[in-house]
């Protein structure tokens, strides 16, 4: 364990954990849009920046992204200094200029007192804030079906060559993890559509209820050694089956 001071309070943190984890454990609310426990920290949205210093730094202070900064013994952290708040305000103002219609951004910006961007609205701005969560989770899951293309202000998230991505299995993790709900998909119980690709859903042989996509099941069978017949029925039917099997064993016991 290491000892750190957060907003004047001495707390203990686990070695190797990031500052953000320690700060959130103290129930201090600091925003972060590109952070998710499922993937490695990235440091792109810069909202979780905090001020750090140490006694031996002779008054020198630094601003770091807490999601990426490993805790250190003796670290003195301030999460809401005027500069830090000003920084978050500016960043949210900039996000708002790029994604003026995003409810998530608008809500967060309003919390910091920004209701209207003070900058020029970006022409053709979208709700995508390029946090990279979708591509990172897709990489982490082993598909790497989508990635960031171009750079700078023209950067966007897209499947290769902007064609339906061959490596996508339609698991929807990207859509779920997207903080601004920008990634769109449809699912009518028969087919699922995302990134311009169509996926057939598997259905429970007993109830007819849809489960996951054929491609996803195939991937799990091949790469995670899940027996293929597990996917024939859905969870409810699995439970019913288990109840009947156990019921039968119990009944035998009774009869004996």
């Amino acid at each position: 364990m290491v000892n750190i001071t957060i907003n004047g309070k001495l707390v203990q943190a686990y070695e190797d954990e990031m500052l953000l984890t320690a700060i959130r454990r103290e129930n201090i609310d600091i925003p972060a849009l590109c952070h998710h426990e499922a993937v490695e920290p990235y440091g792109a949205c810069r909202l979780c920046m905090v001020e750090i210093t140490k006694d031996e730094w002779d008054g020198w202070k630094n601003h770091v992204t807490s999601c990426l900064y490993p805790v250190e013994e003796g670290l003195i952290v301030n999460t809401h200094t005027p500069t830090v708040i000003e920084l978050r305000k500016t960043i949210l103002d900039l996000f708002l200029a790029g994604s003026p219609r995003s409810t998530v951004i608008r809500k967060l910006a309003a919390e910091y007192g920004v209701t209207k961007t003070s900058y020029e609205e970006v022409p053709d701005g979208t709700d995508c804030i390029l946090c990279g969560l979708c591509t990172r989770v897709c990489d982490k899951m082993g598909f790497s079906a989508i990635s960031a293309v171009n750079r700078g202000h023209g950067k966007e998230i897209a499947p290769p060559l902007n064609e339906p991505p061959p490596d996508c299995v339609g698991c929807l993790s990207c859509a779920y993890i997207c903080p601004t709900r920008y990634i769109k998909f449809t699912d009518d119980g028969k087919t699922r559509k995302i990134w311009g690709r169509k996926f057939k859903l598997l259905h429970c042989e007993k109830t007819g209820q849809p489960t996951i996509t054929e491609e996803f099941a195939r991937y799990l069978v091949k790469n995670r050694q899940i027996p293929e017949d597990y996917f024939k029925i859905n969870d409810l039917s699995h439970r019913k089956e288990l109840a009947l099997k156990m019921g039968e064993i119990t009944q035998w016991g009774r009869e004996e």
């Binding site: 792109a44 810069r46 960043i91 750079r151 202000h153």
Partner: peptide, 18 residues
């Protein structure tokens, strides 16, 4: 710089643009 920014972080991508 706007066109050479990698576009990863907000202050550089959006800030320099503005």
């Amino acid at each position: 710089l706007v066109s050479e920014s990698c576009g990863k972080c907000n202050p550089c991508r959006e800030g320099l643009y503005q």
